[in-house]
Simulated assay, not measured.
Amino acid sequence: KAAALYNDIHVLFVKQSERQKDIEKVWGGKDGLTEQIIYLPKKKGFLGKLPNYKEWEAHYKAQVGQIVESYQPQLIHVHIPWKVGLIALWAKRKFNLPFVVTEHWGIYNNIVEDNIHTKSFFFRYLLKLICKKADSFISVSRYLGNGVNQTLLKKEFVVIPNVVDTKLFFPTPKKYDQFTFLHVSNMVPLKNVESILLAFHQFLQNKSKDARLILIGNRDDQYERLVAGWNILNKSIFFKGEIAYADVAREMQSSHVFVLNSNIENSPCVIGEALCCGLPVIATSVGGISELVDNSNGLLIHPNSTPELESALIKAFDTYHAMQRKQPTSSARIKFSPNTIGSQIAAVYDQVLRKQP
């Protein structure tokens, strides 16, 4: 949507699922944005991998060919180069279309289990070829771009952070009556949710019982059982599960402080969204987070340190009004806005097209 503010954009996405019985095509979009999604059945097991890839590839190539014939696009923009970057390589050879890559994937480190070093030679060769042949490379953080350079290939990159829907995420004066810490994530182990729960439990015992913690995202029974054992489930700690995007915005607007305790991140959307809502952010100084959070808008802590997180909760609770007064909300709303991000993407497109013969 941000890119479509400055250029006509046709989004094409082909997705396979074992639950999909028949081929399904969905169209949507408006105001310069066309969205086309194709859902394909997926064969099960190892023997289905090659036929699945061939079918996925055939549908992508057929649709790209139709788009080229009907709309004469000037370039292709690939989000996450593996594996749709292979289609961009093919289109570059067949139609002489330049392509831009934006990388979001957090595999270029030694921290995540499924990192680049665990991938096969064939995978790394093709991923390197895609990135090498890209006419421009965008990273959502300096950390991620540097990681690509350190683990895959040397490639100049432009940093463009993730966009925030500033029509949804904006500050409001109305807050919960009770001081509220908020966490939003998919609750996977790398988010280190258990440490948030432990730190907040200690906060309640050592500082104040007049506060609460709301967690939004994939519900995990182990976390609820842990909190139930402390007899504070739905009293001081609340799990709301997965909720609508607009409801996430309302929770951010109503809360006081946002907490993210991840072991690794690139450029988490939730931090940009929290900052646009005027929330001070407590976050771990890992990955690209320090590019978003500093002492003007939050508190940075070391990862895997429950005592340090508890201290940060106490400091945010004690100095909330001072933190809120110096919160540069307006600059965040400019930095992450669709207009700003869209104009930065458009500048990359223009630069690529100027270099074409």
Rank of each mutant, 00 (worst) to 15 (best):
V140S: 02
V140G: 01
S141I: 08
S141R: 14
R142D: 15
R142F: 05
R142G: 03
Y143Q: 12
Y143H: 14
L144W: 01
L144V: 06
G145V: 01
G145E: 01
N146L: 02
N146S: 03
G147W: 09
G147S: 11
N149M: 04
T151H: 14
L152F: 11
L152Q: 14
L152M: 15
L153R: 03
E156F: 13
E156P: 14
F157W: 06
V158P: 05
V159C: 00
N162C: 01
N162H: 04
V163R: 03
V164D: 00
D165Y: 11
D165I: 11
D165P: 13
T166F: 14
K167Q: 14
L168I: 08
L168M: 12
P171V: 06
T172M: 11
P173R: 03
P173T: 07
P173V: 06
K175S: 05
Y176W: 05
Y176M: 07
Y176C: 06
D177A: 14
D177L: 13
Q178N: 09
Q178Y: 03
T180R: 02
F181Y: 15
F181S: 06
L182W: 00
L182K: 01
H183E: 00
H183W: 02
S185E: 01
N186E: 10
K191N: 08
K191Y: 02
E194D: 14
I196D: 00
L197K: 07
L198A: 13
H201Q: 15
F203Q: 03
F203D: 01
F203I: 09
L204V: 09
Q205V: 13
Q205G: 12
Q205E: 15
Q205F: 13
N206M: 08
K207L: 00
S208F: 13
S208W: 11
S208K: 07
K209H: 09
D210C: 10
A211S: 10
L213V: 00
I216Q: 04
I216E: 04
G217S: 01
N218H: 13
R219A: 10
R219D: 05
R219M: 08
R219V: 08
D220Q: 15
D221A: 15
Q222N: 15
Y223D: 03
E224Q: 15
R225M: 12
R225W: 06
L226K: 11
L226W: 05
A228G: 12
G229I: 08
G229Y: 07
W230V: 07
W230K: 14
W230C: 05
W230I: 01
W230R: 08
I232L: 13
I232P: 09
I232E: 11
L233M: 08
L233A: 05
L233R: 04
N234L: 00
K235F: 03
K235M: 01
S236K: 10
S236Q: 08
F238P: 00
F239S: 02
F239V: 04
G241H: 10
I243M: 09
A244I: 13
Y245F: 15
Y245I: 11
D247C: 09
V248N: 06
V248R: 02
R250C: 00
R250E: 12
M252E: 00
M252V: 06
S255D: 10
V257K: 03
V259H: 03
V259N: 04
L260H: 08
N261M: 07
S262Y: 10
N263C: 05
I264Y: 01
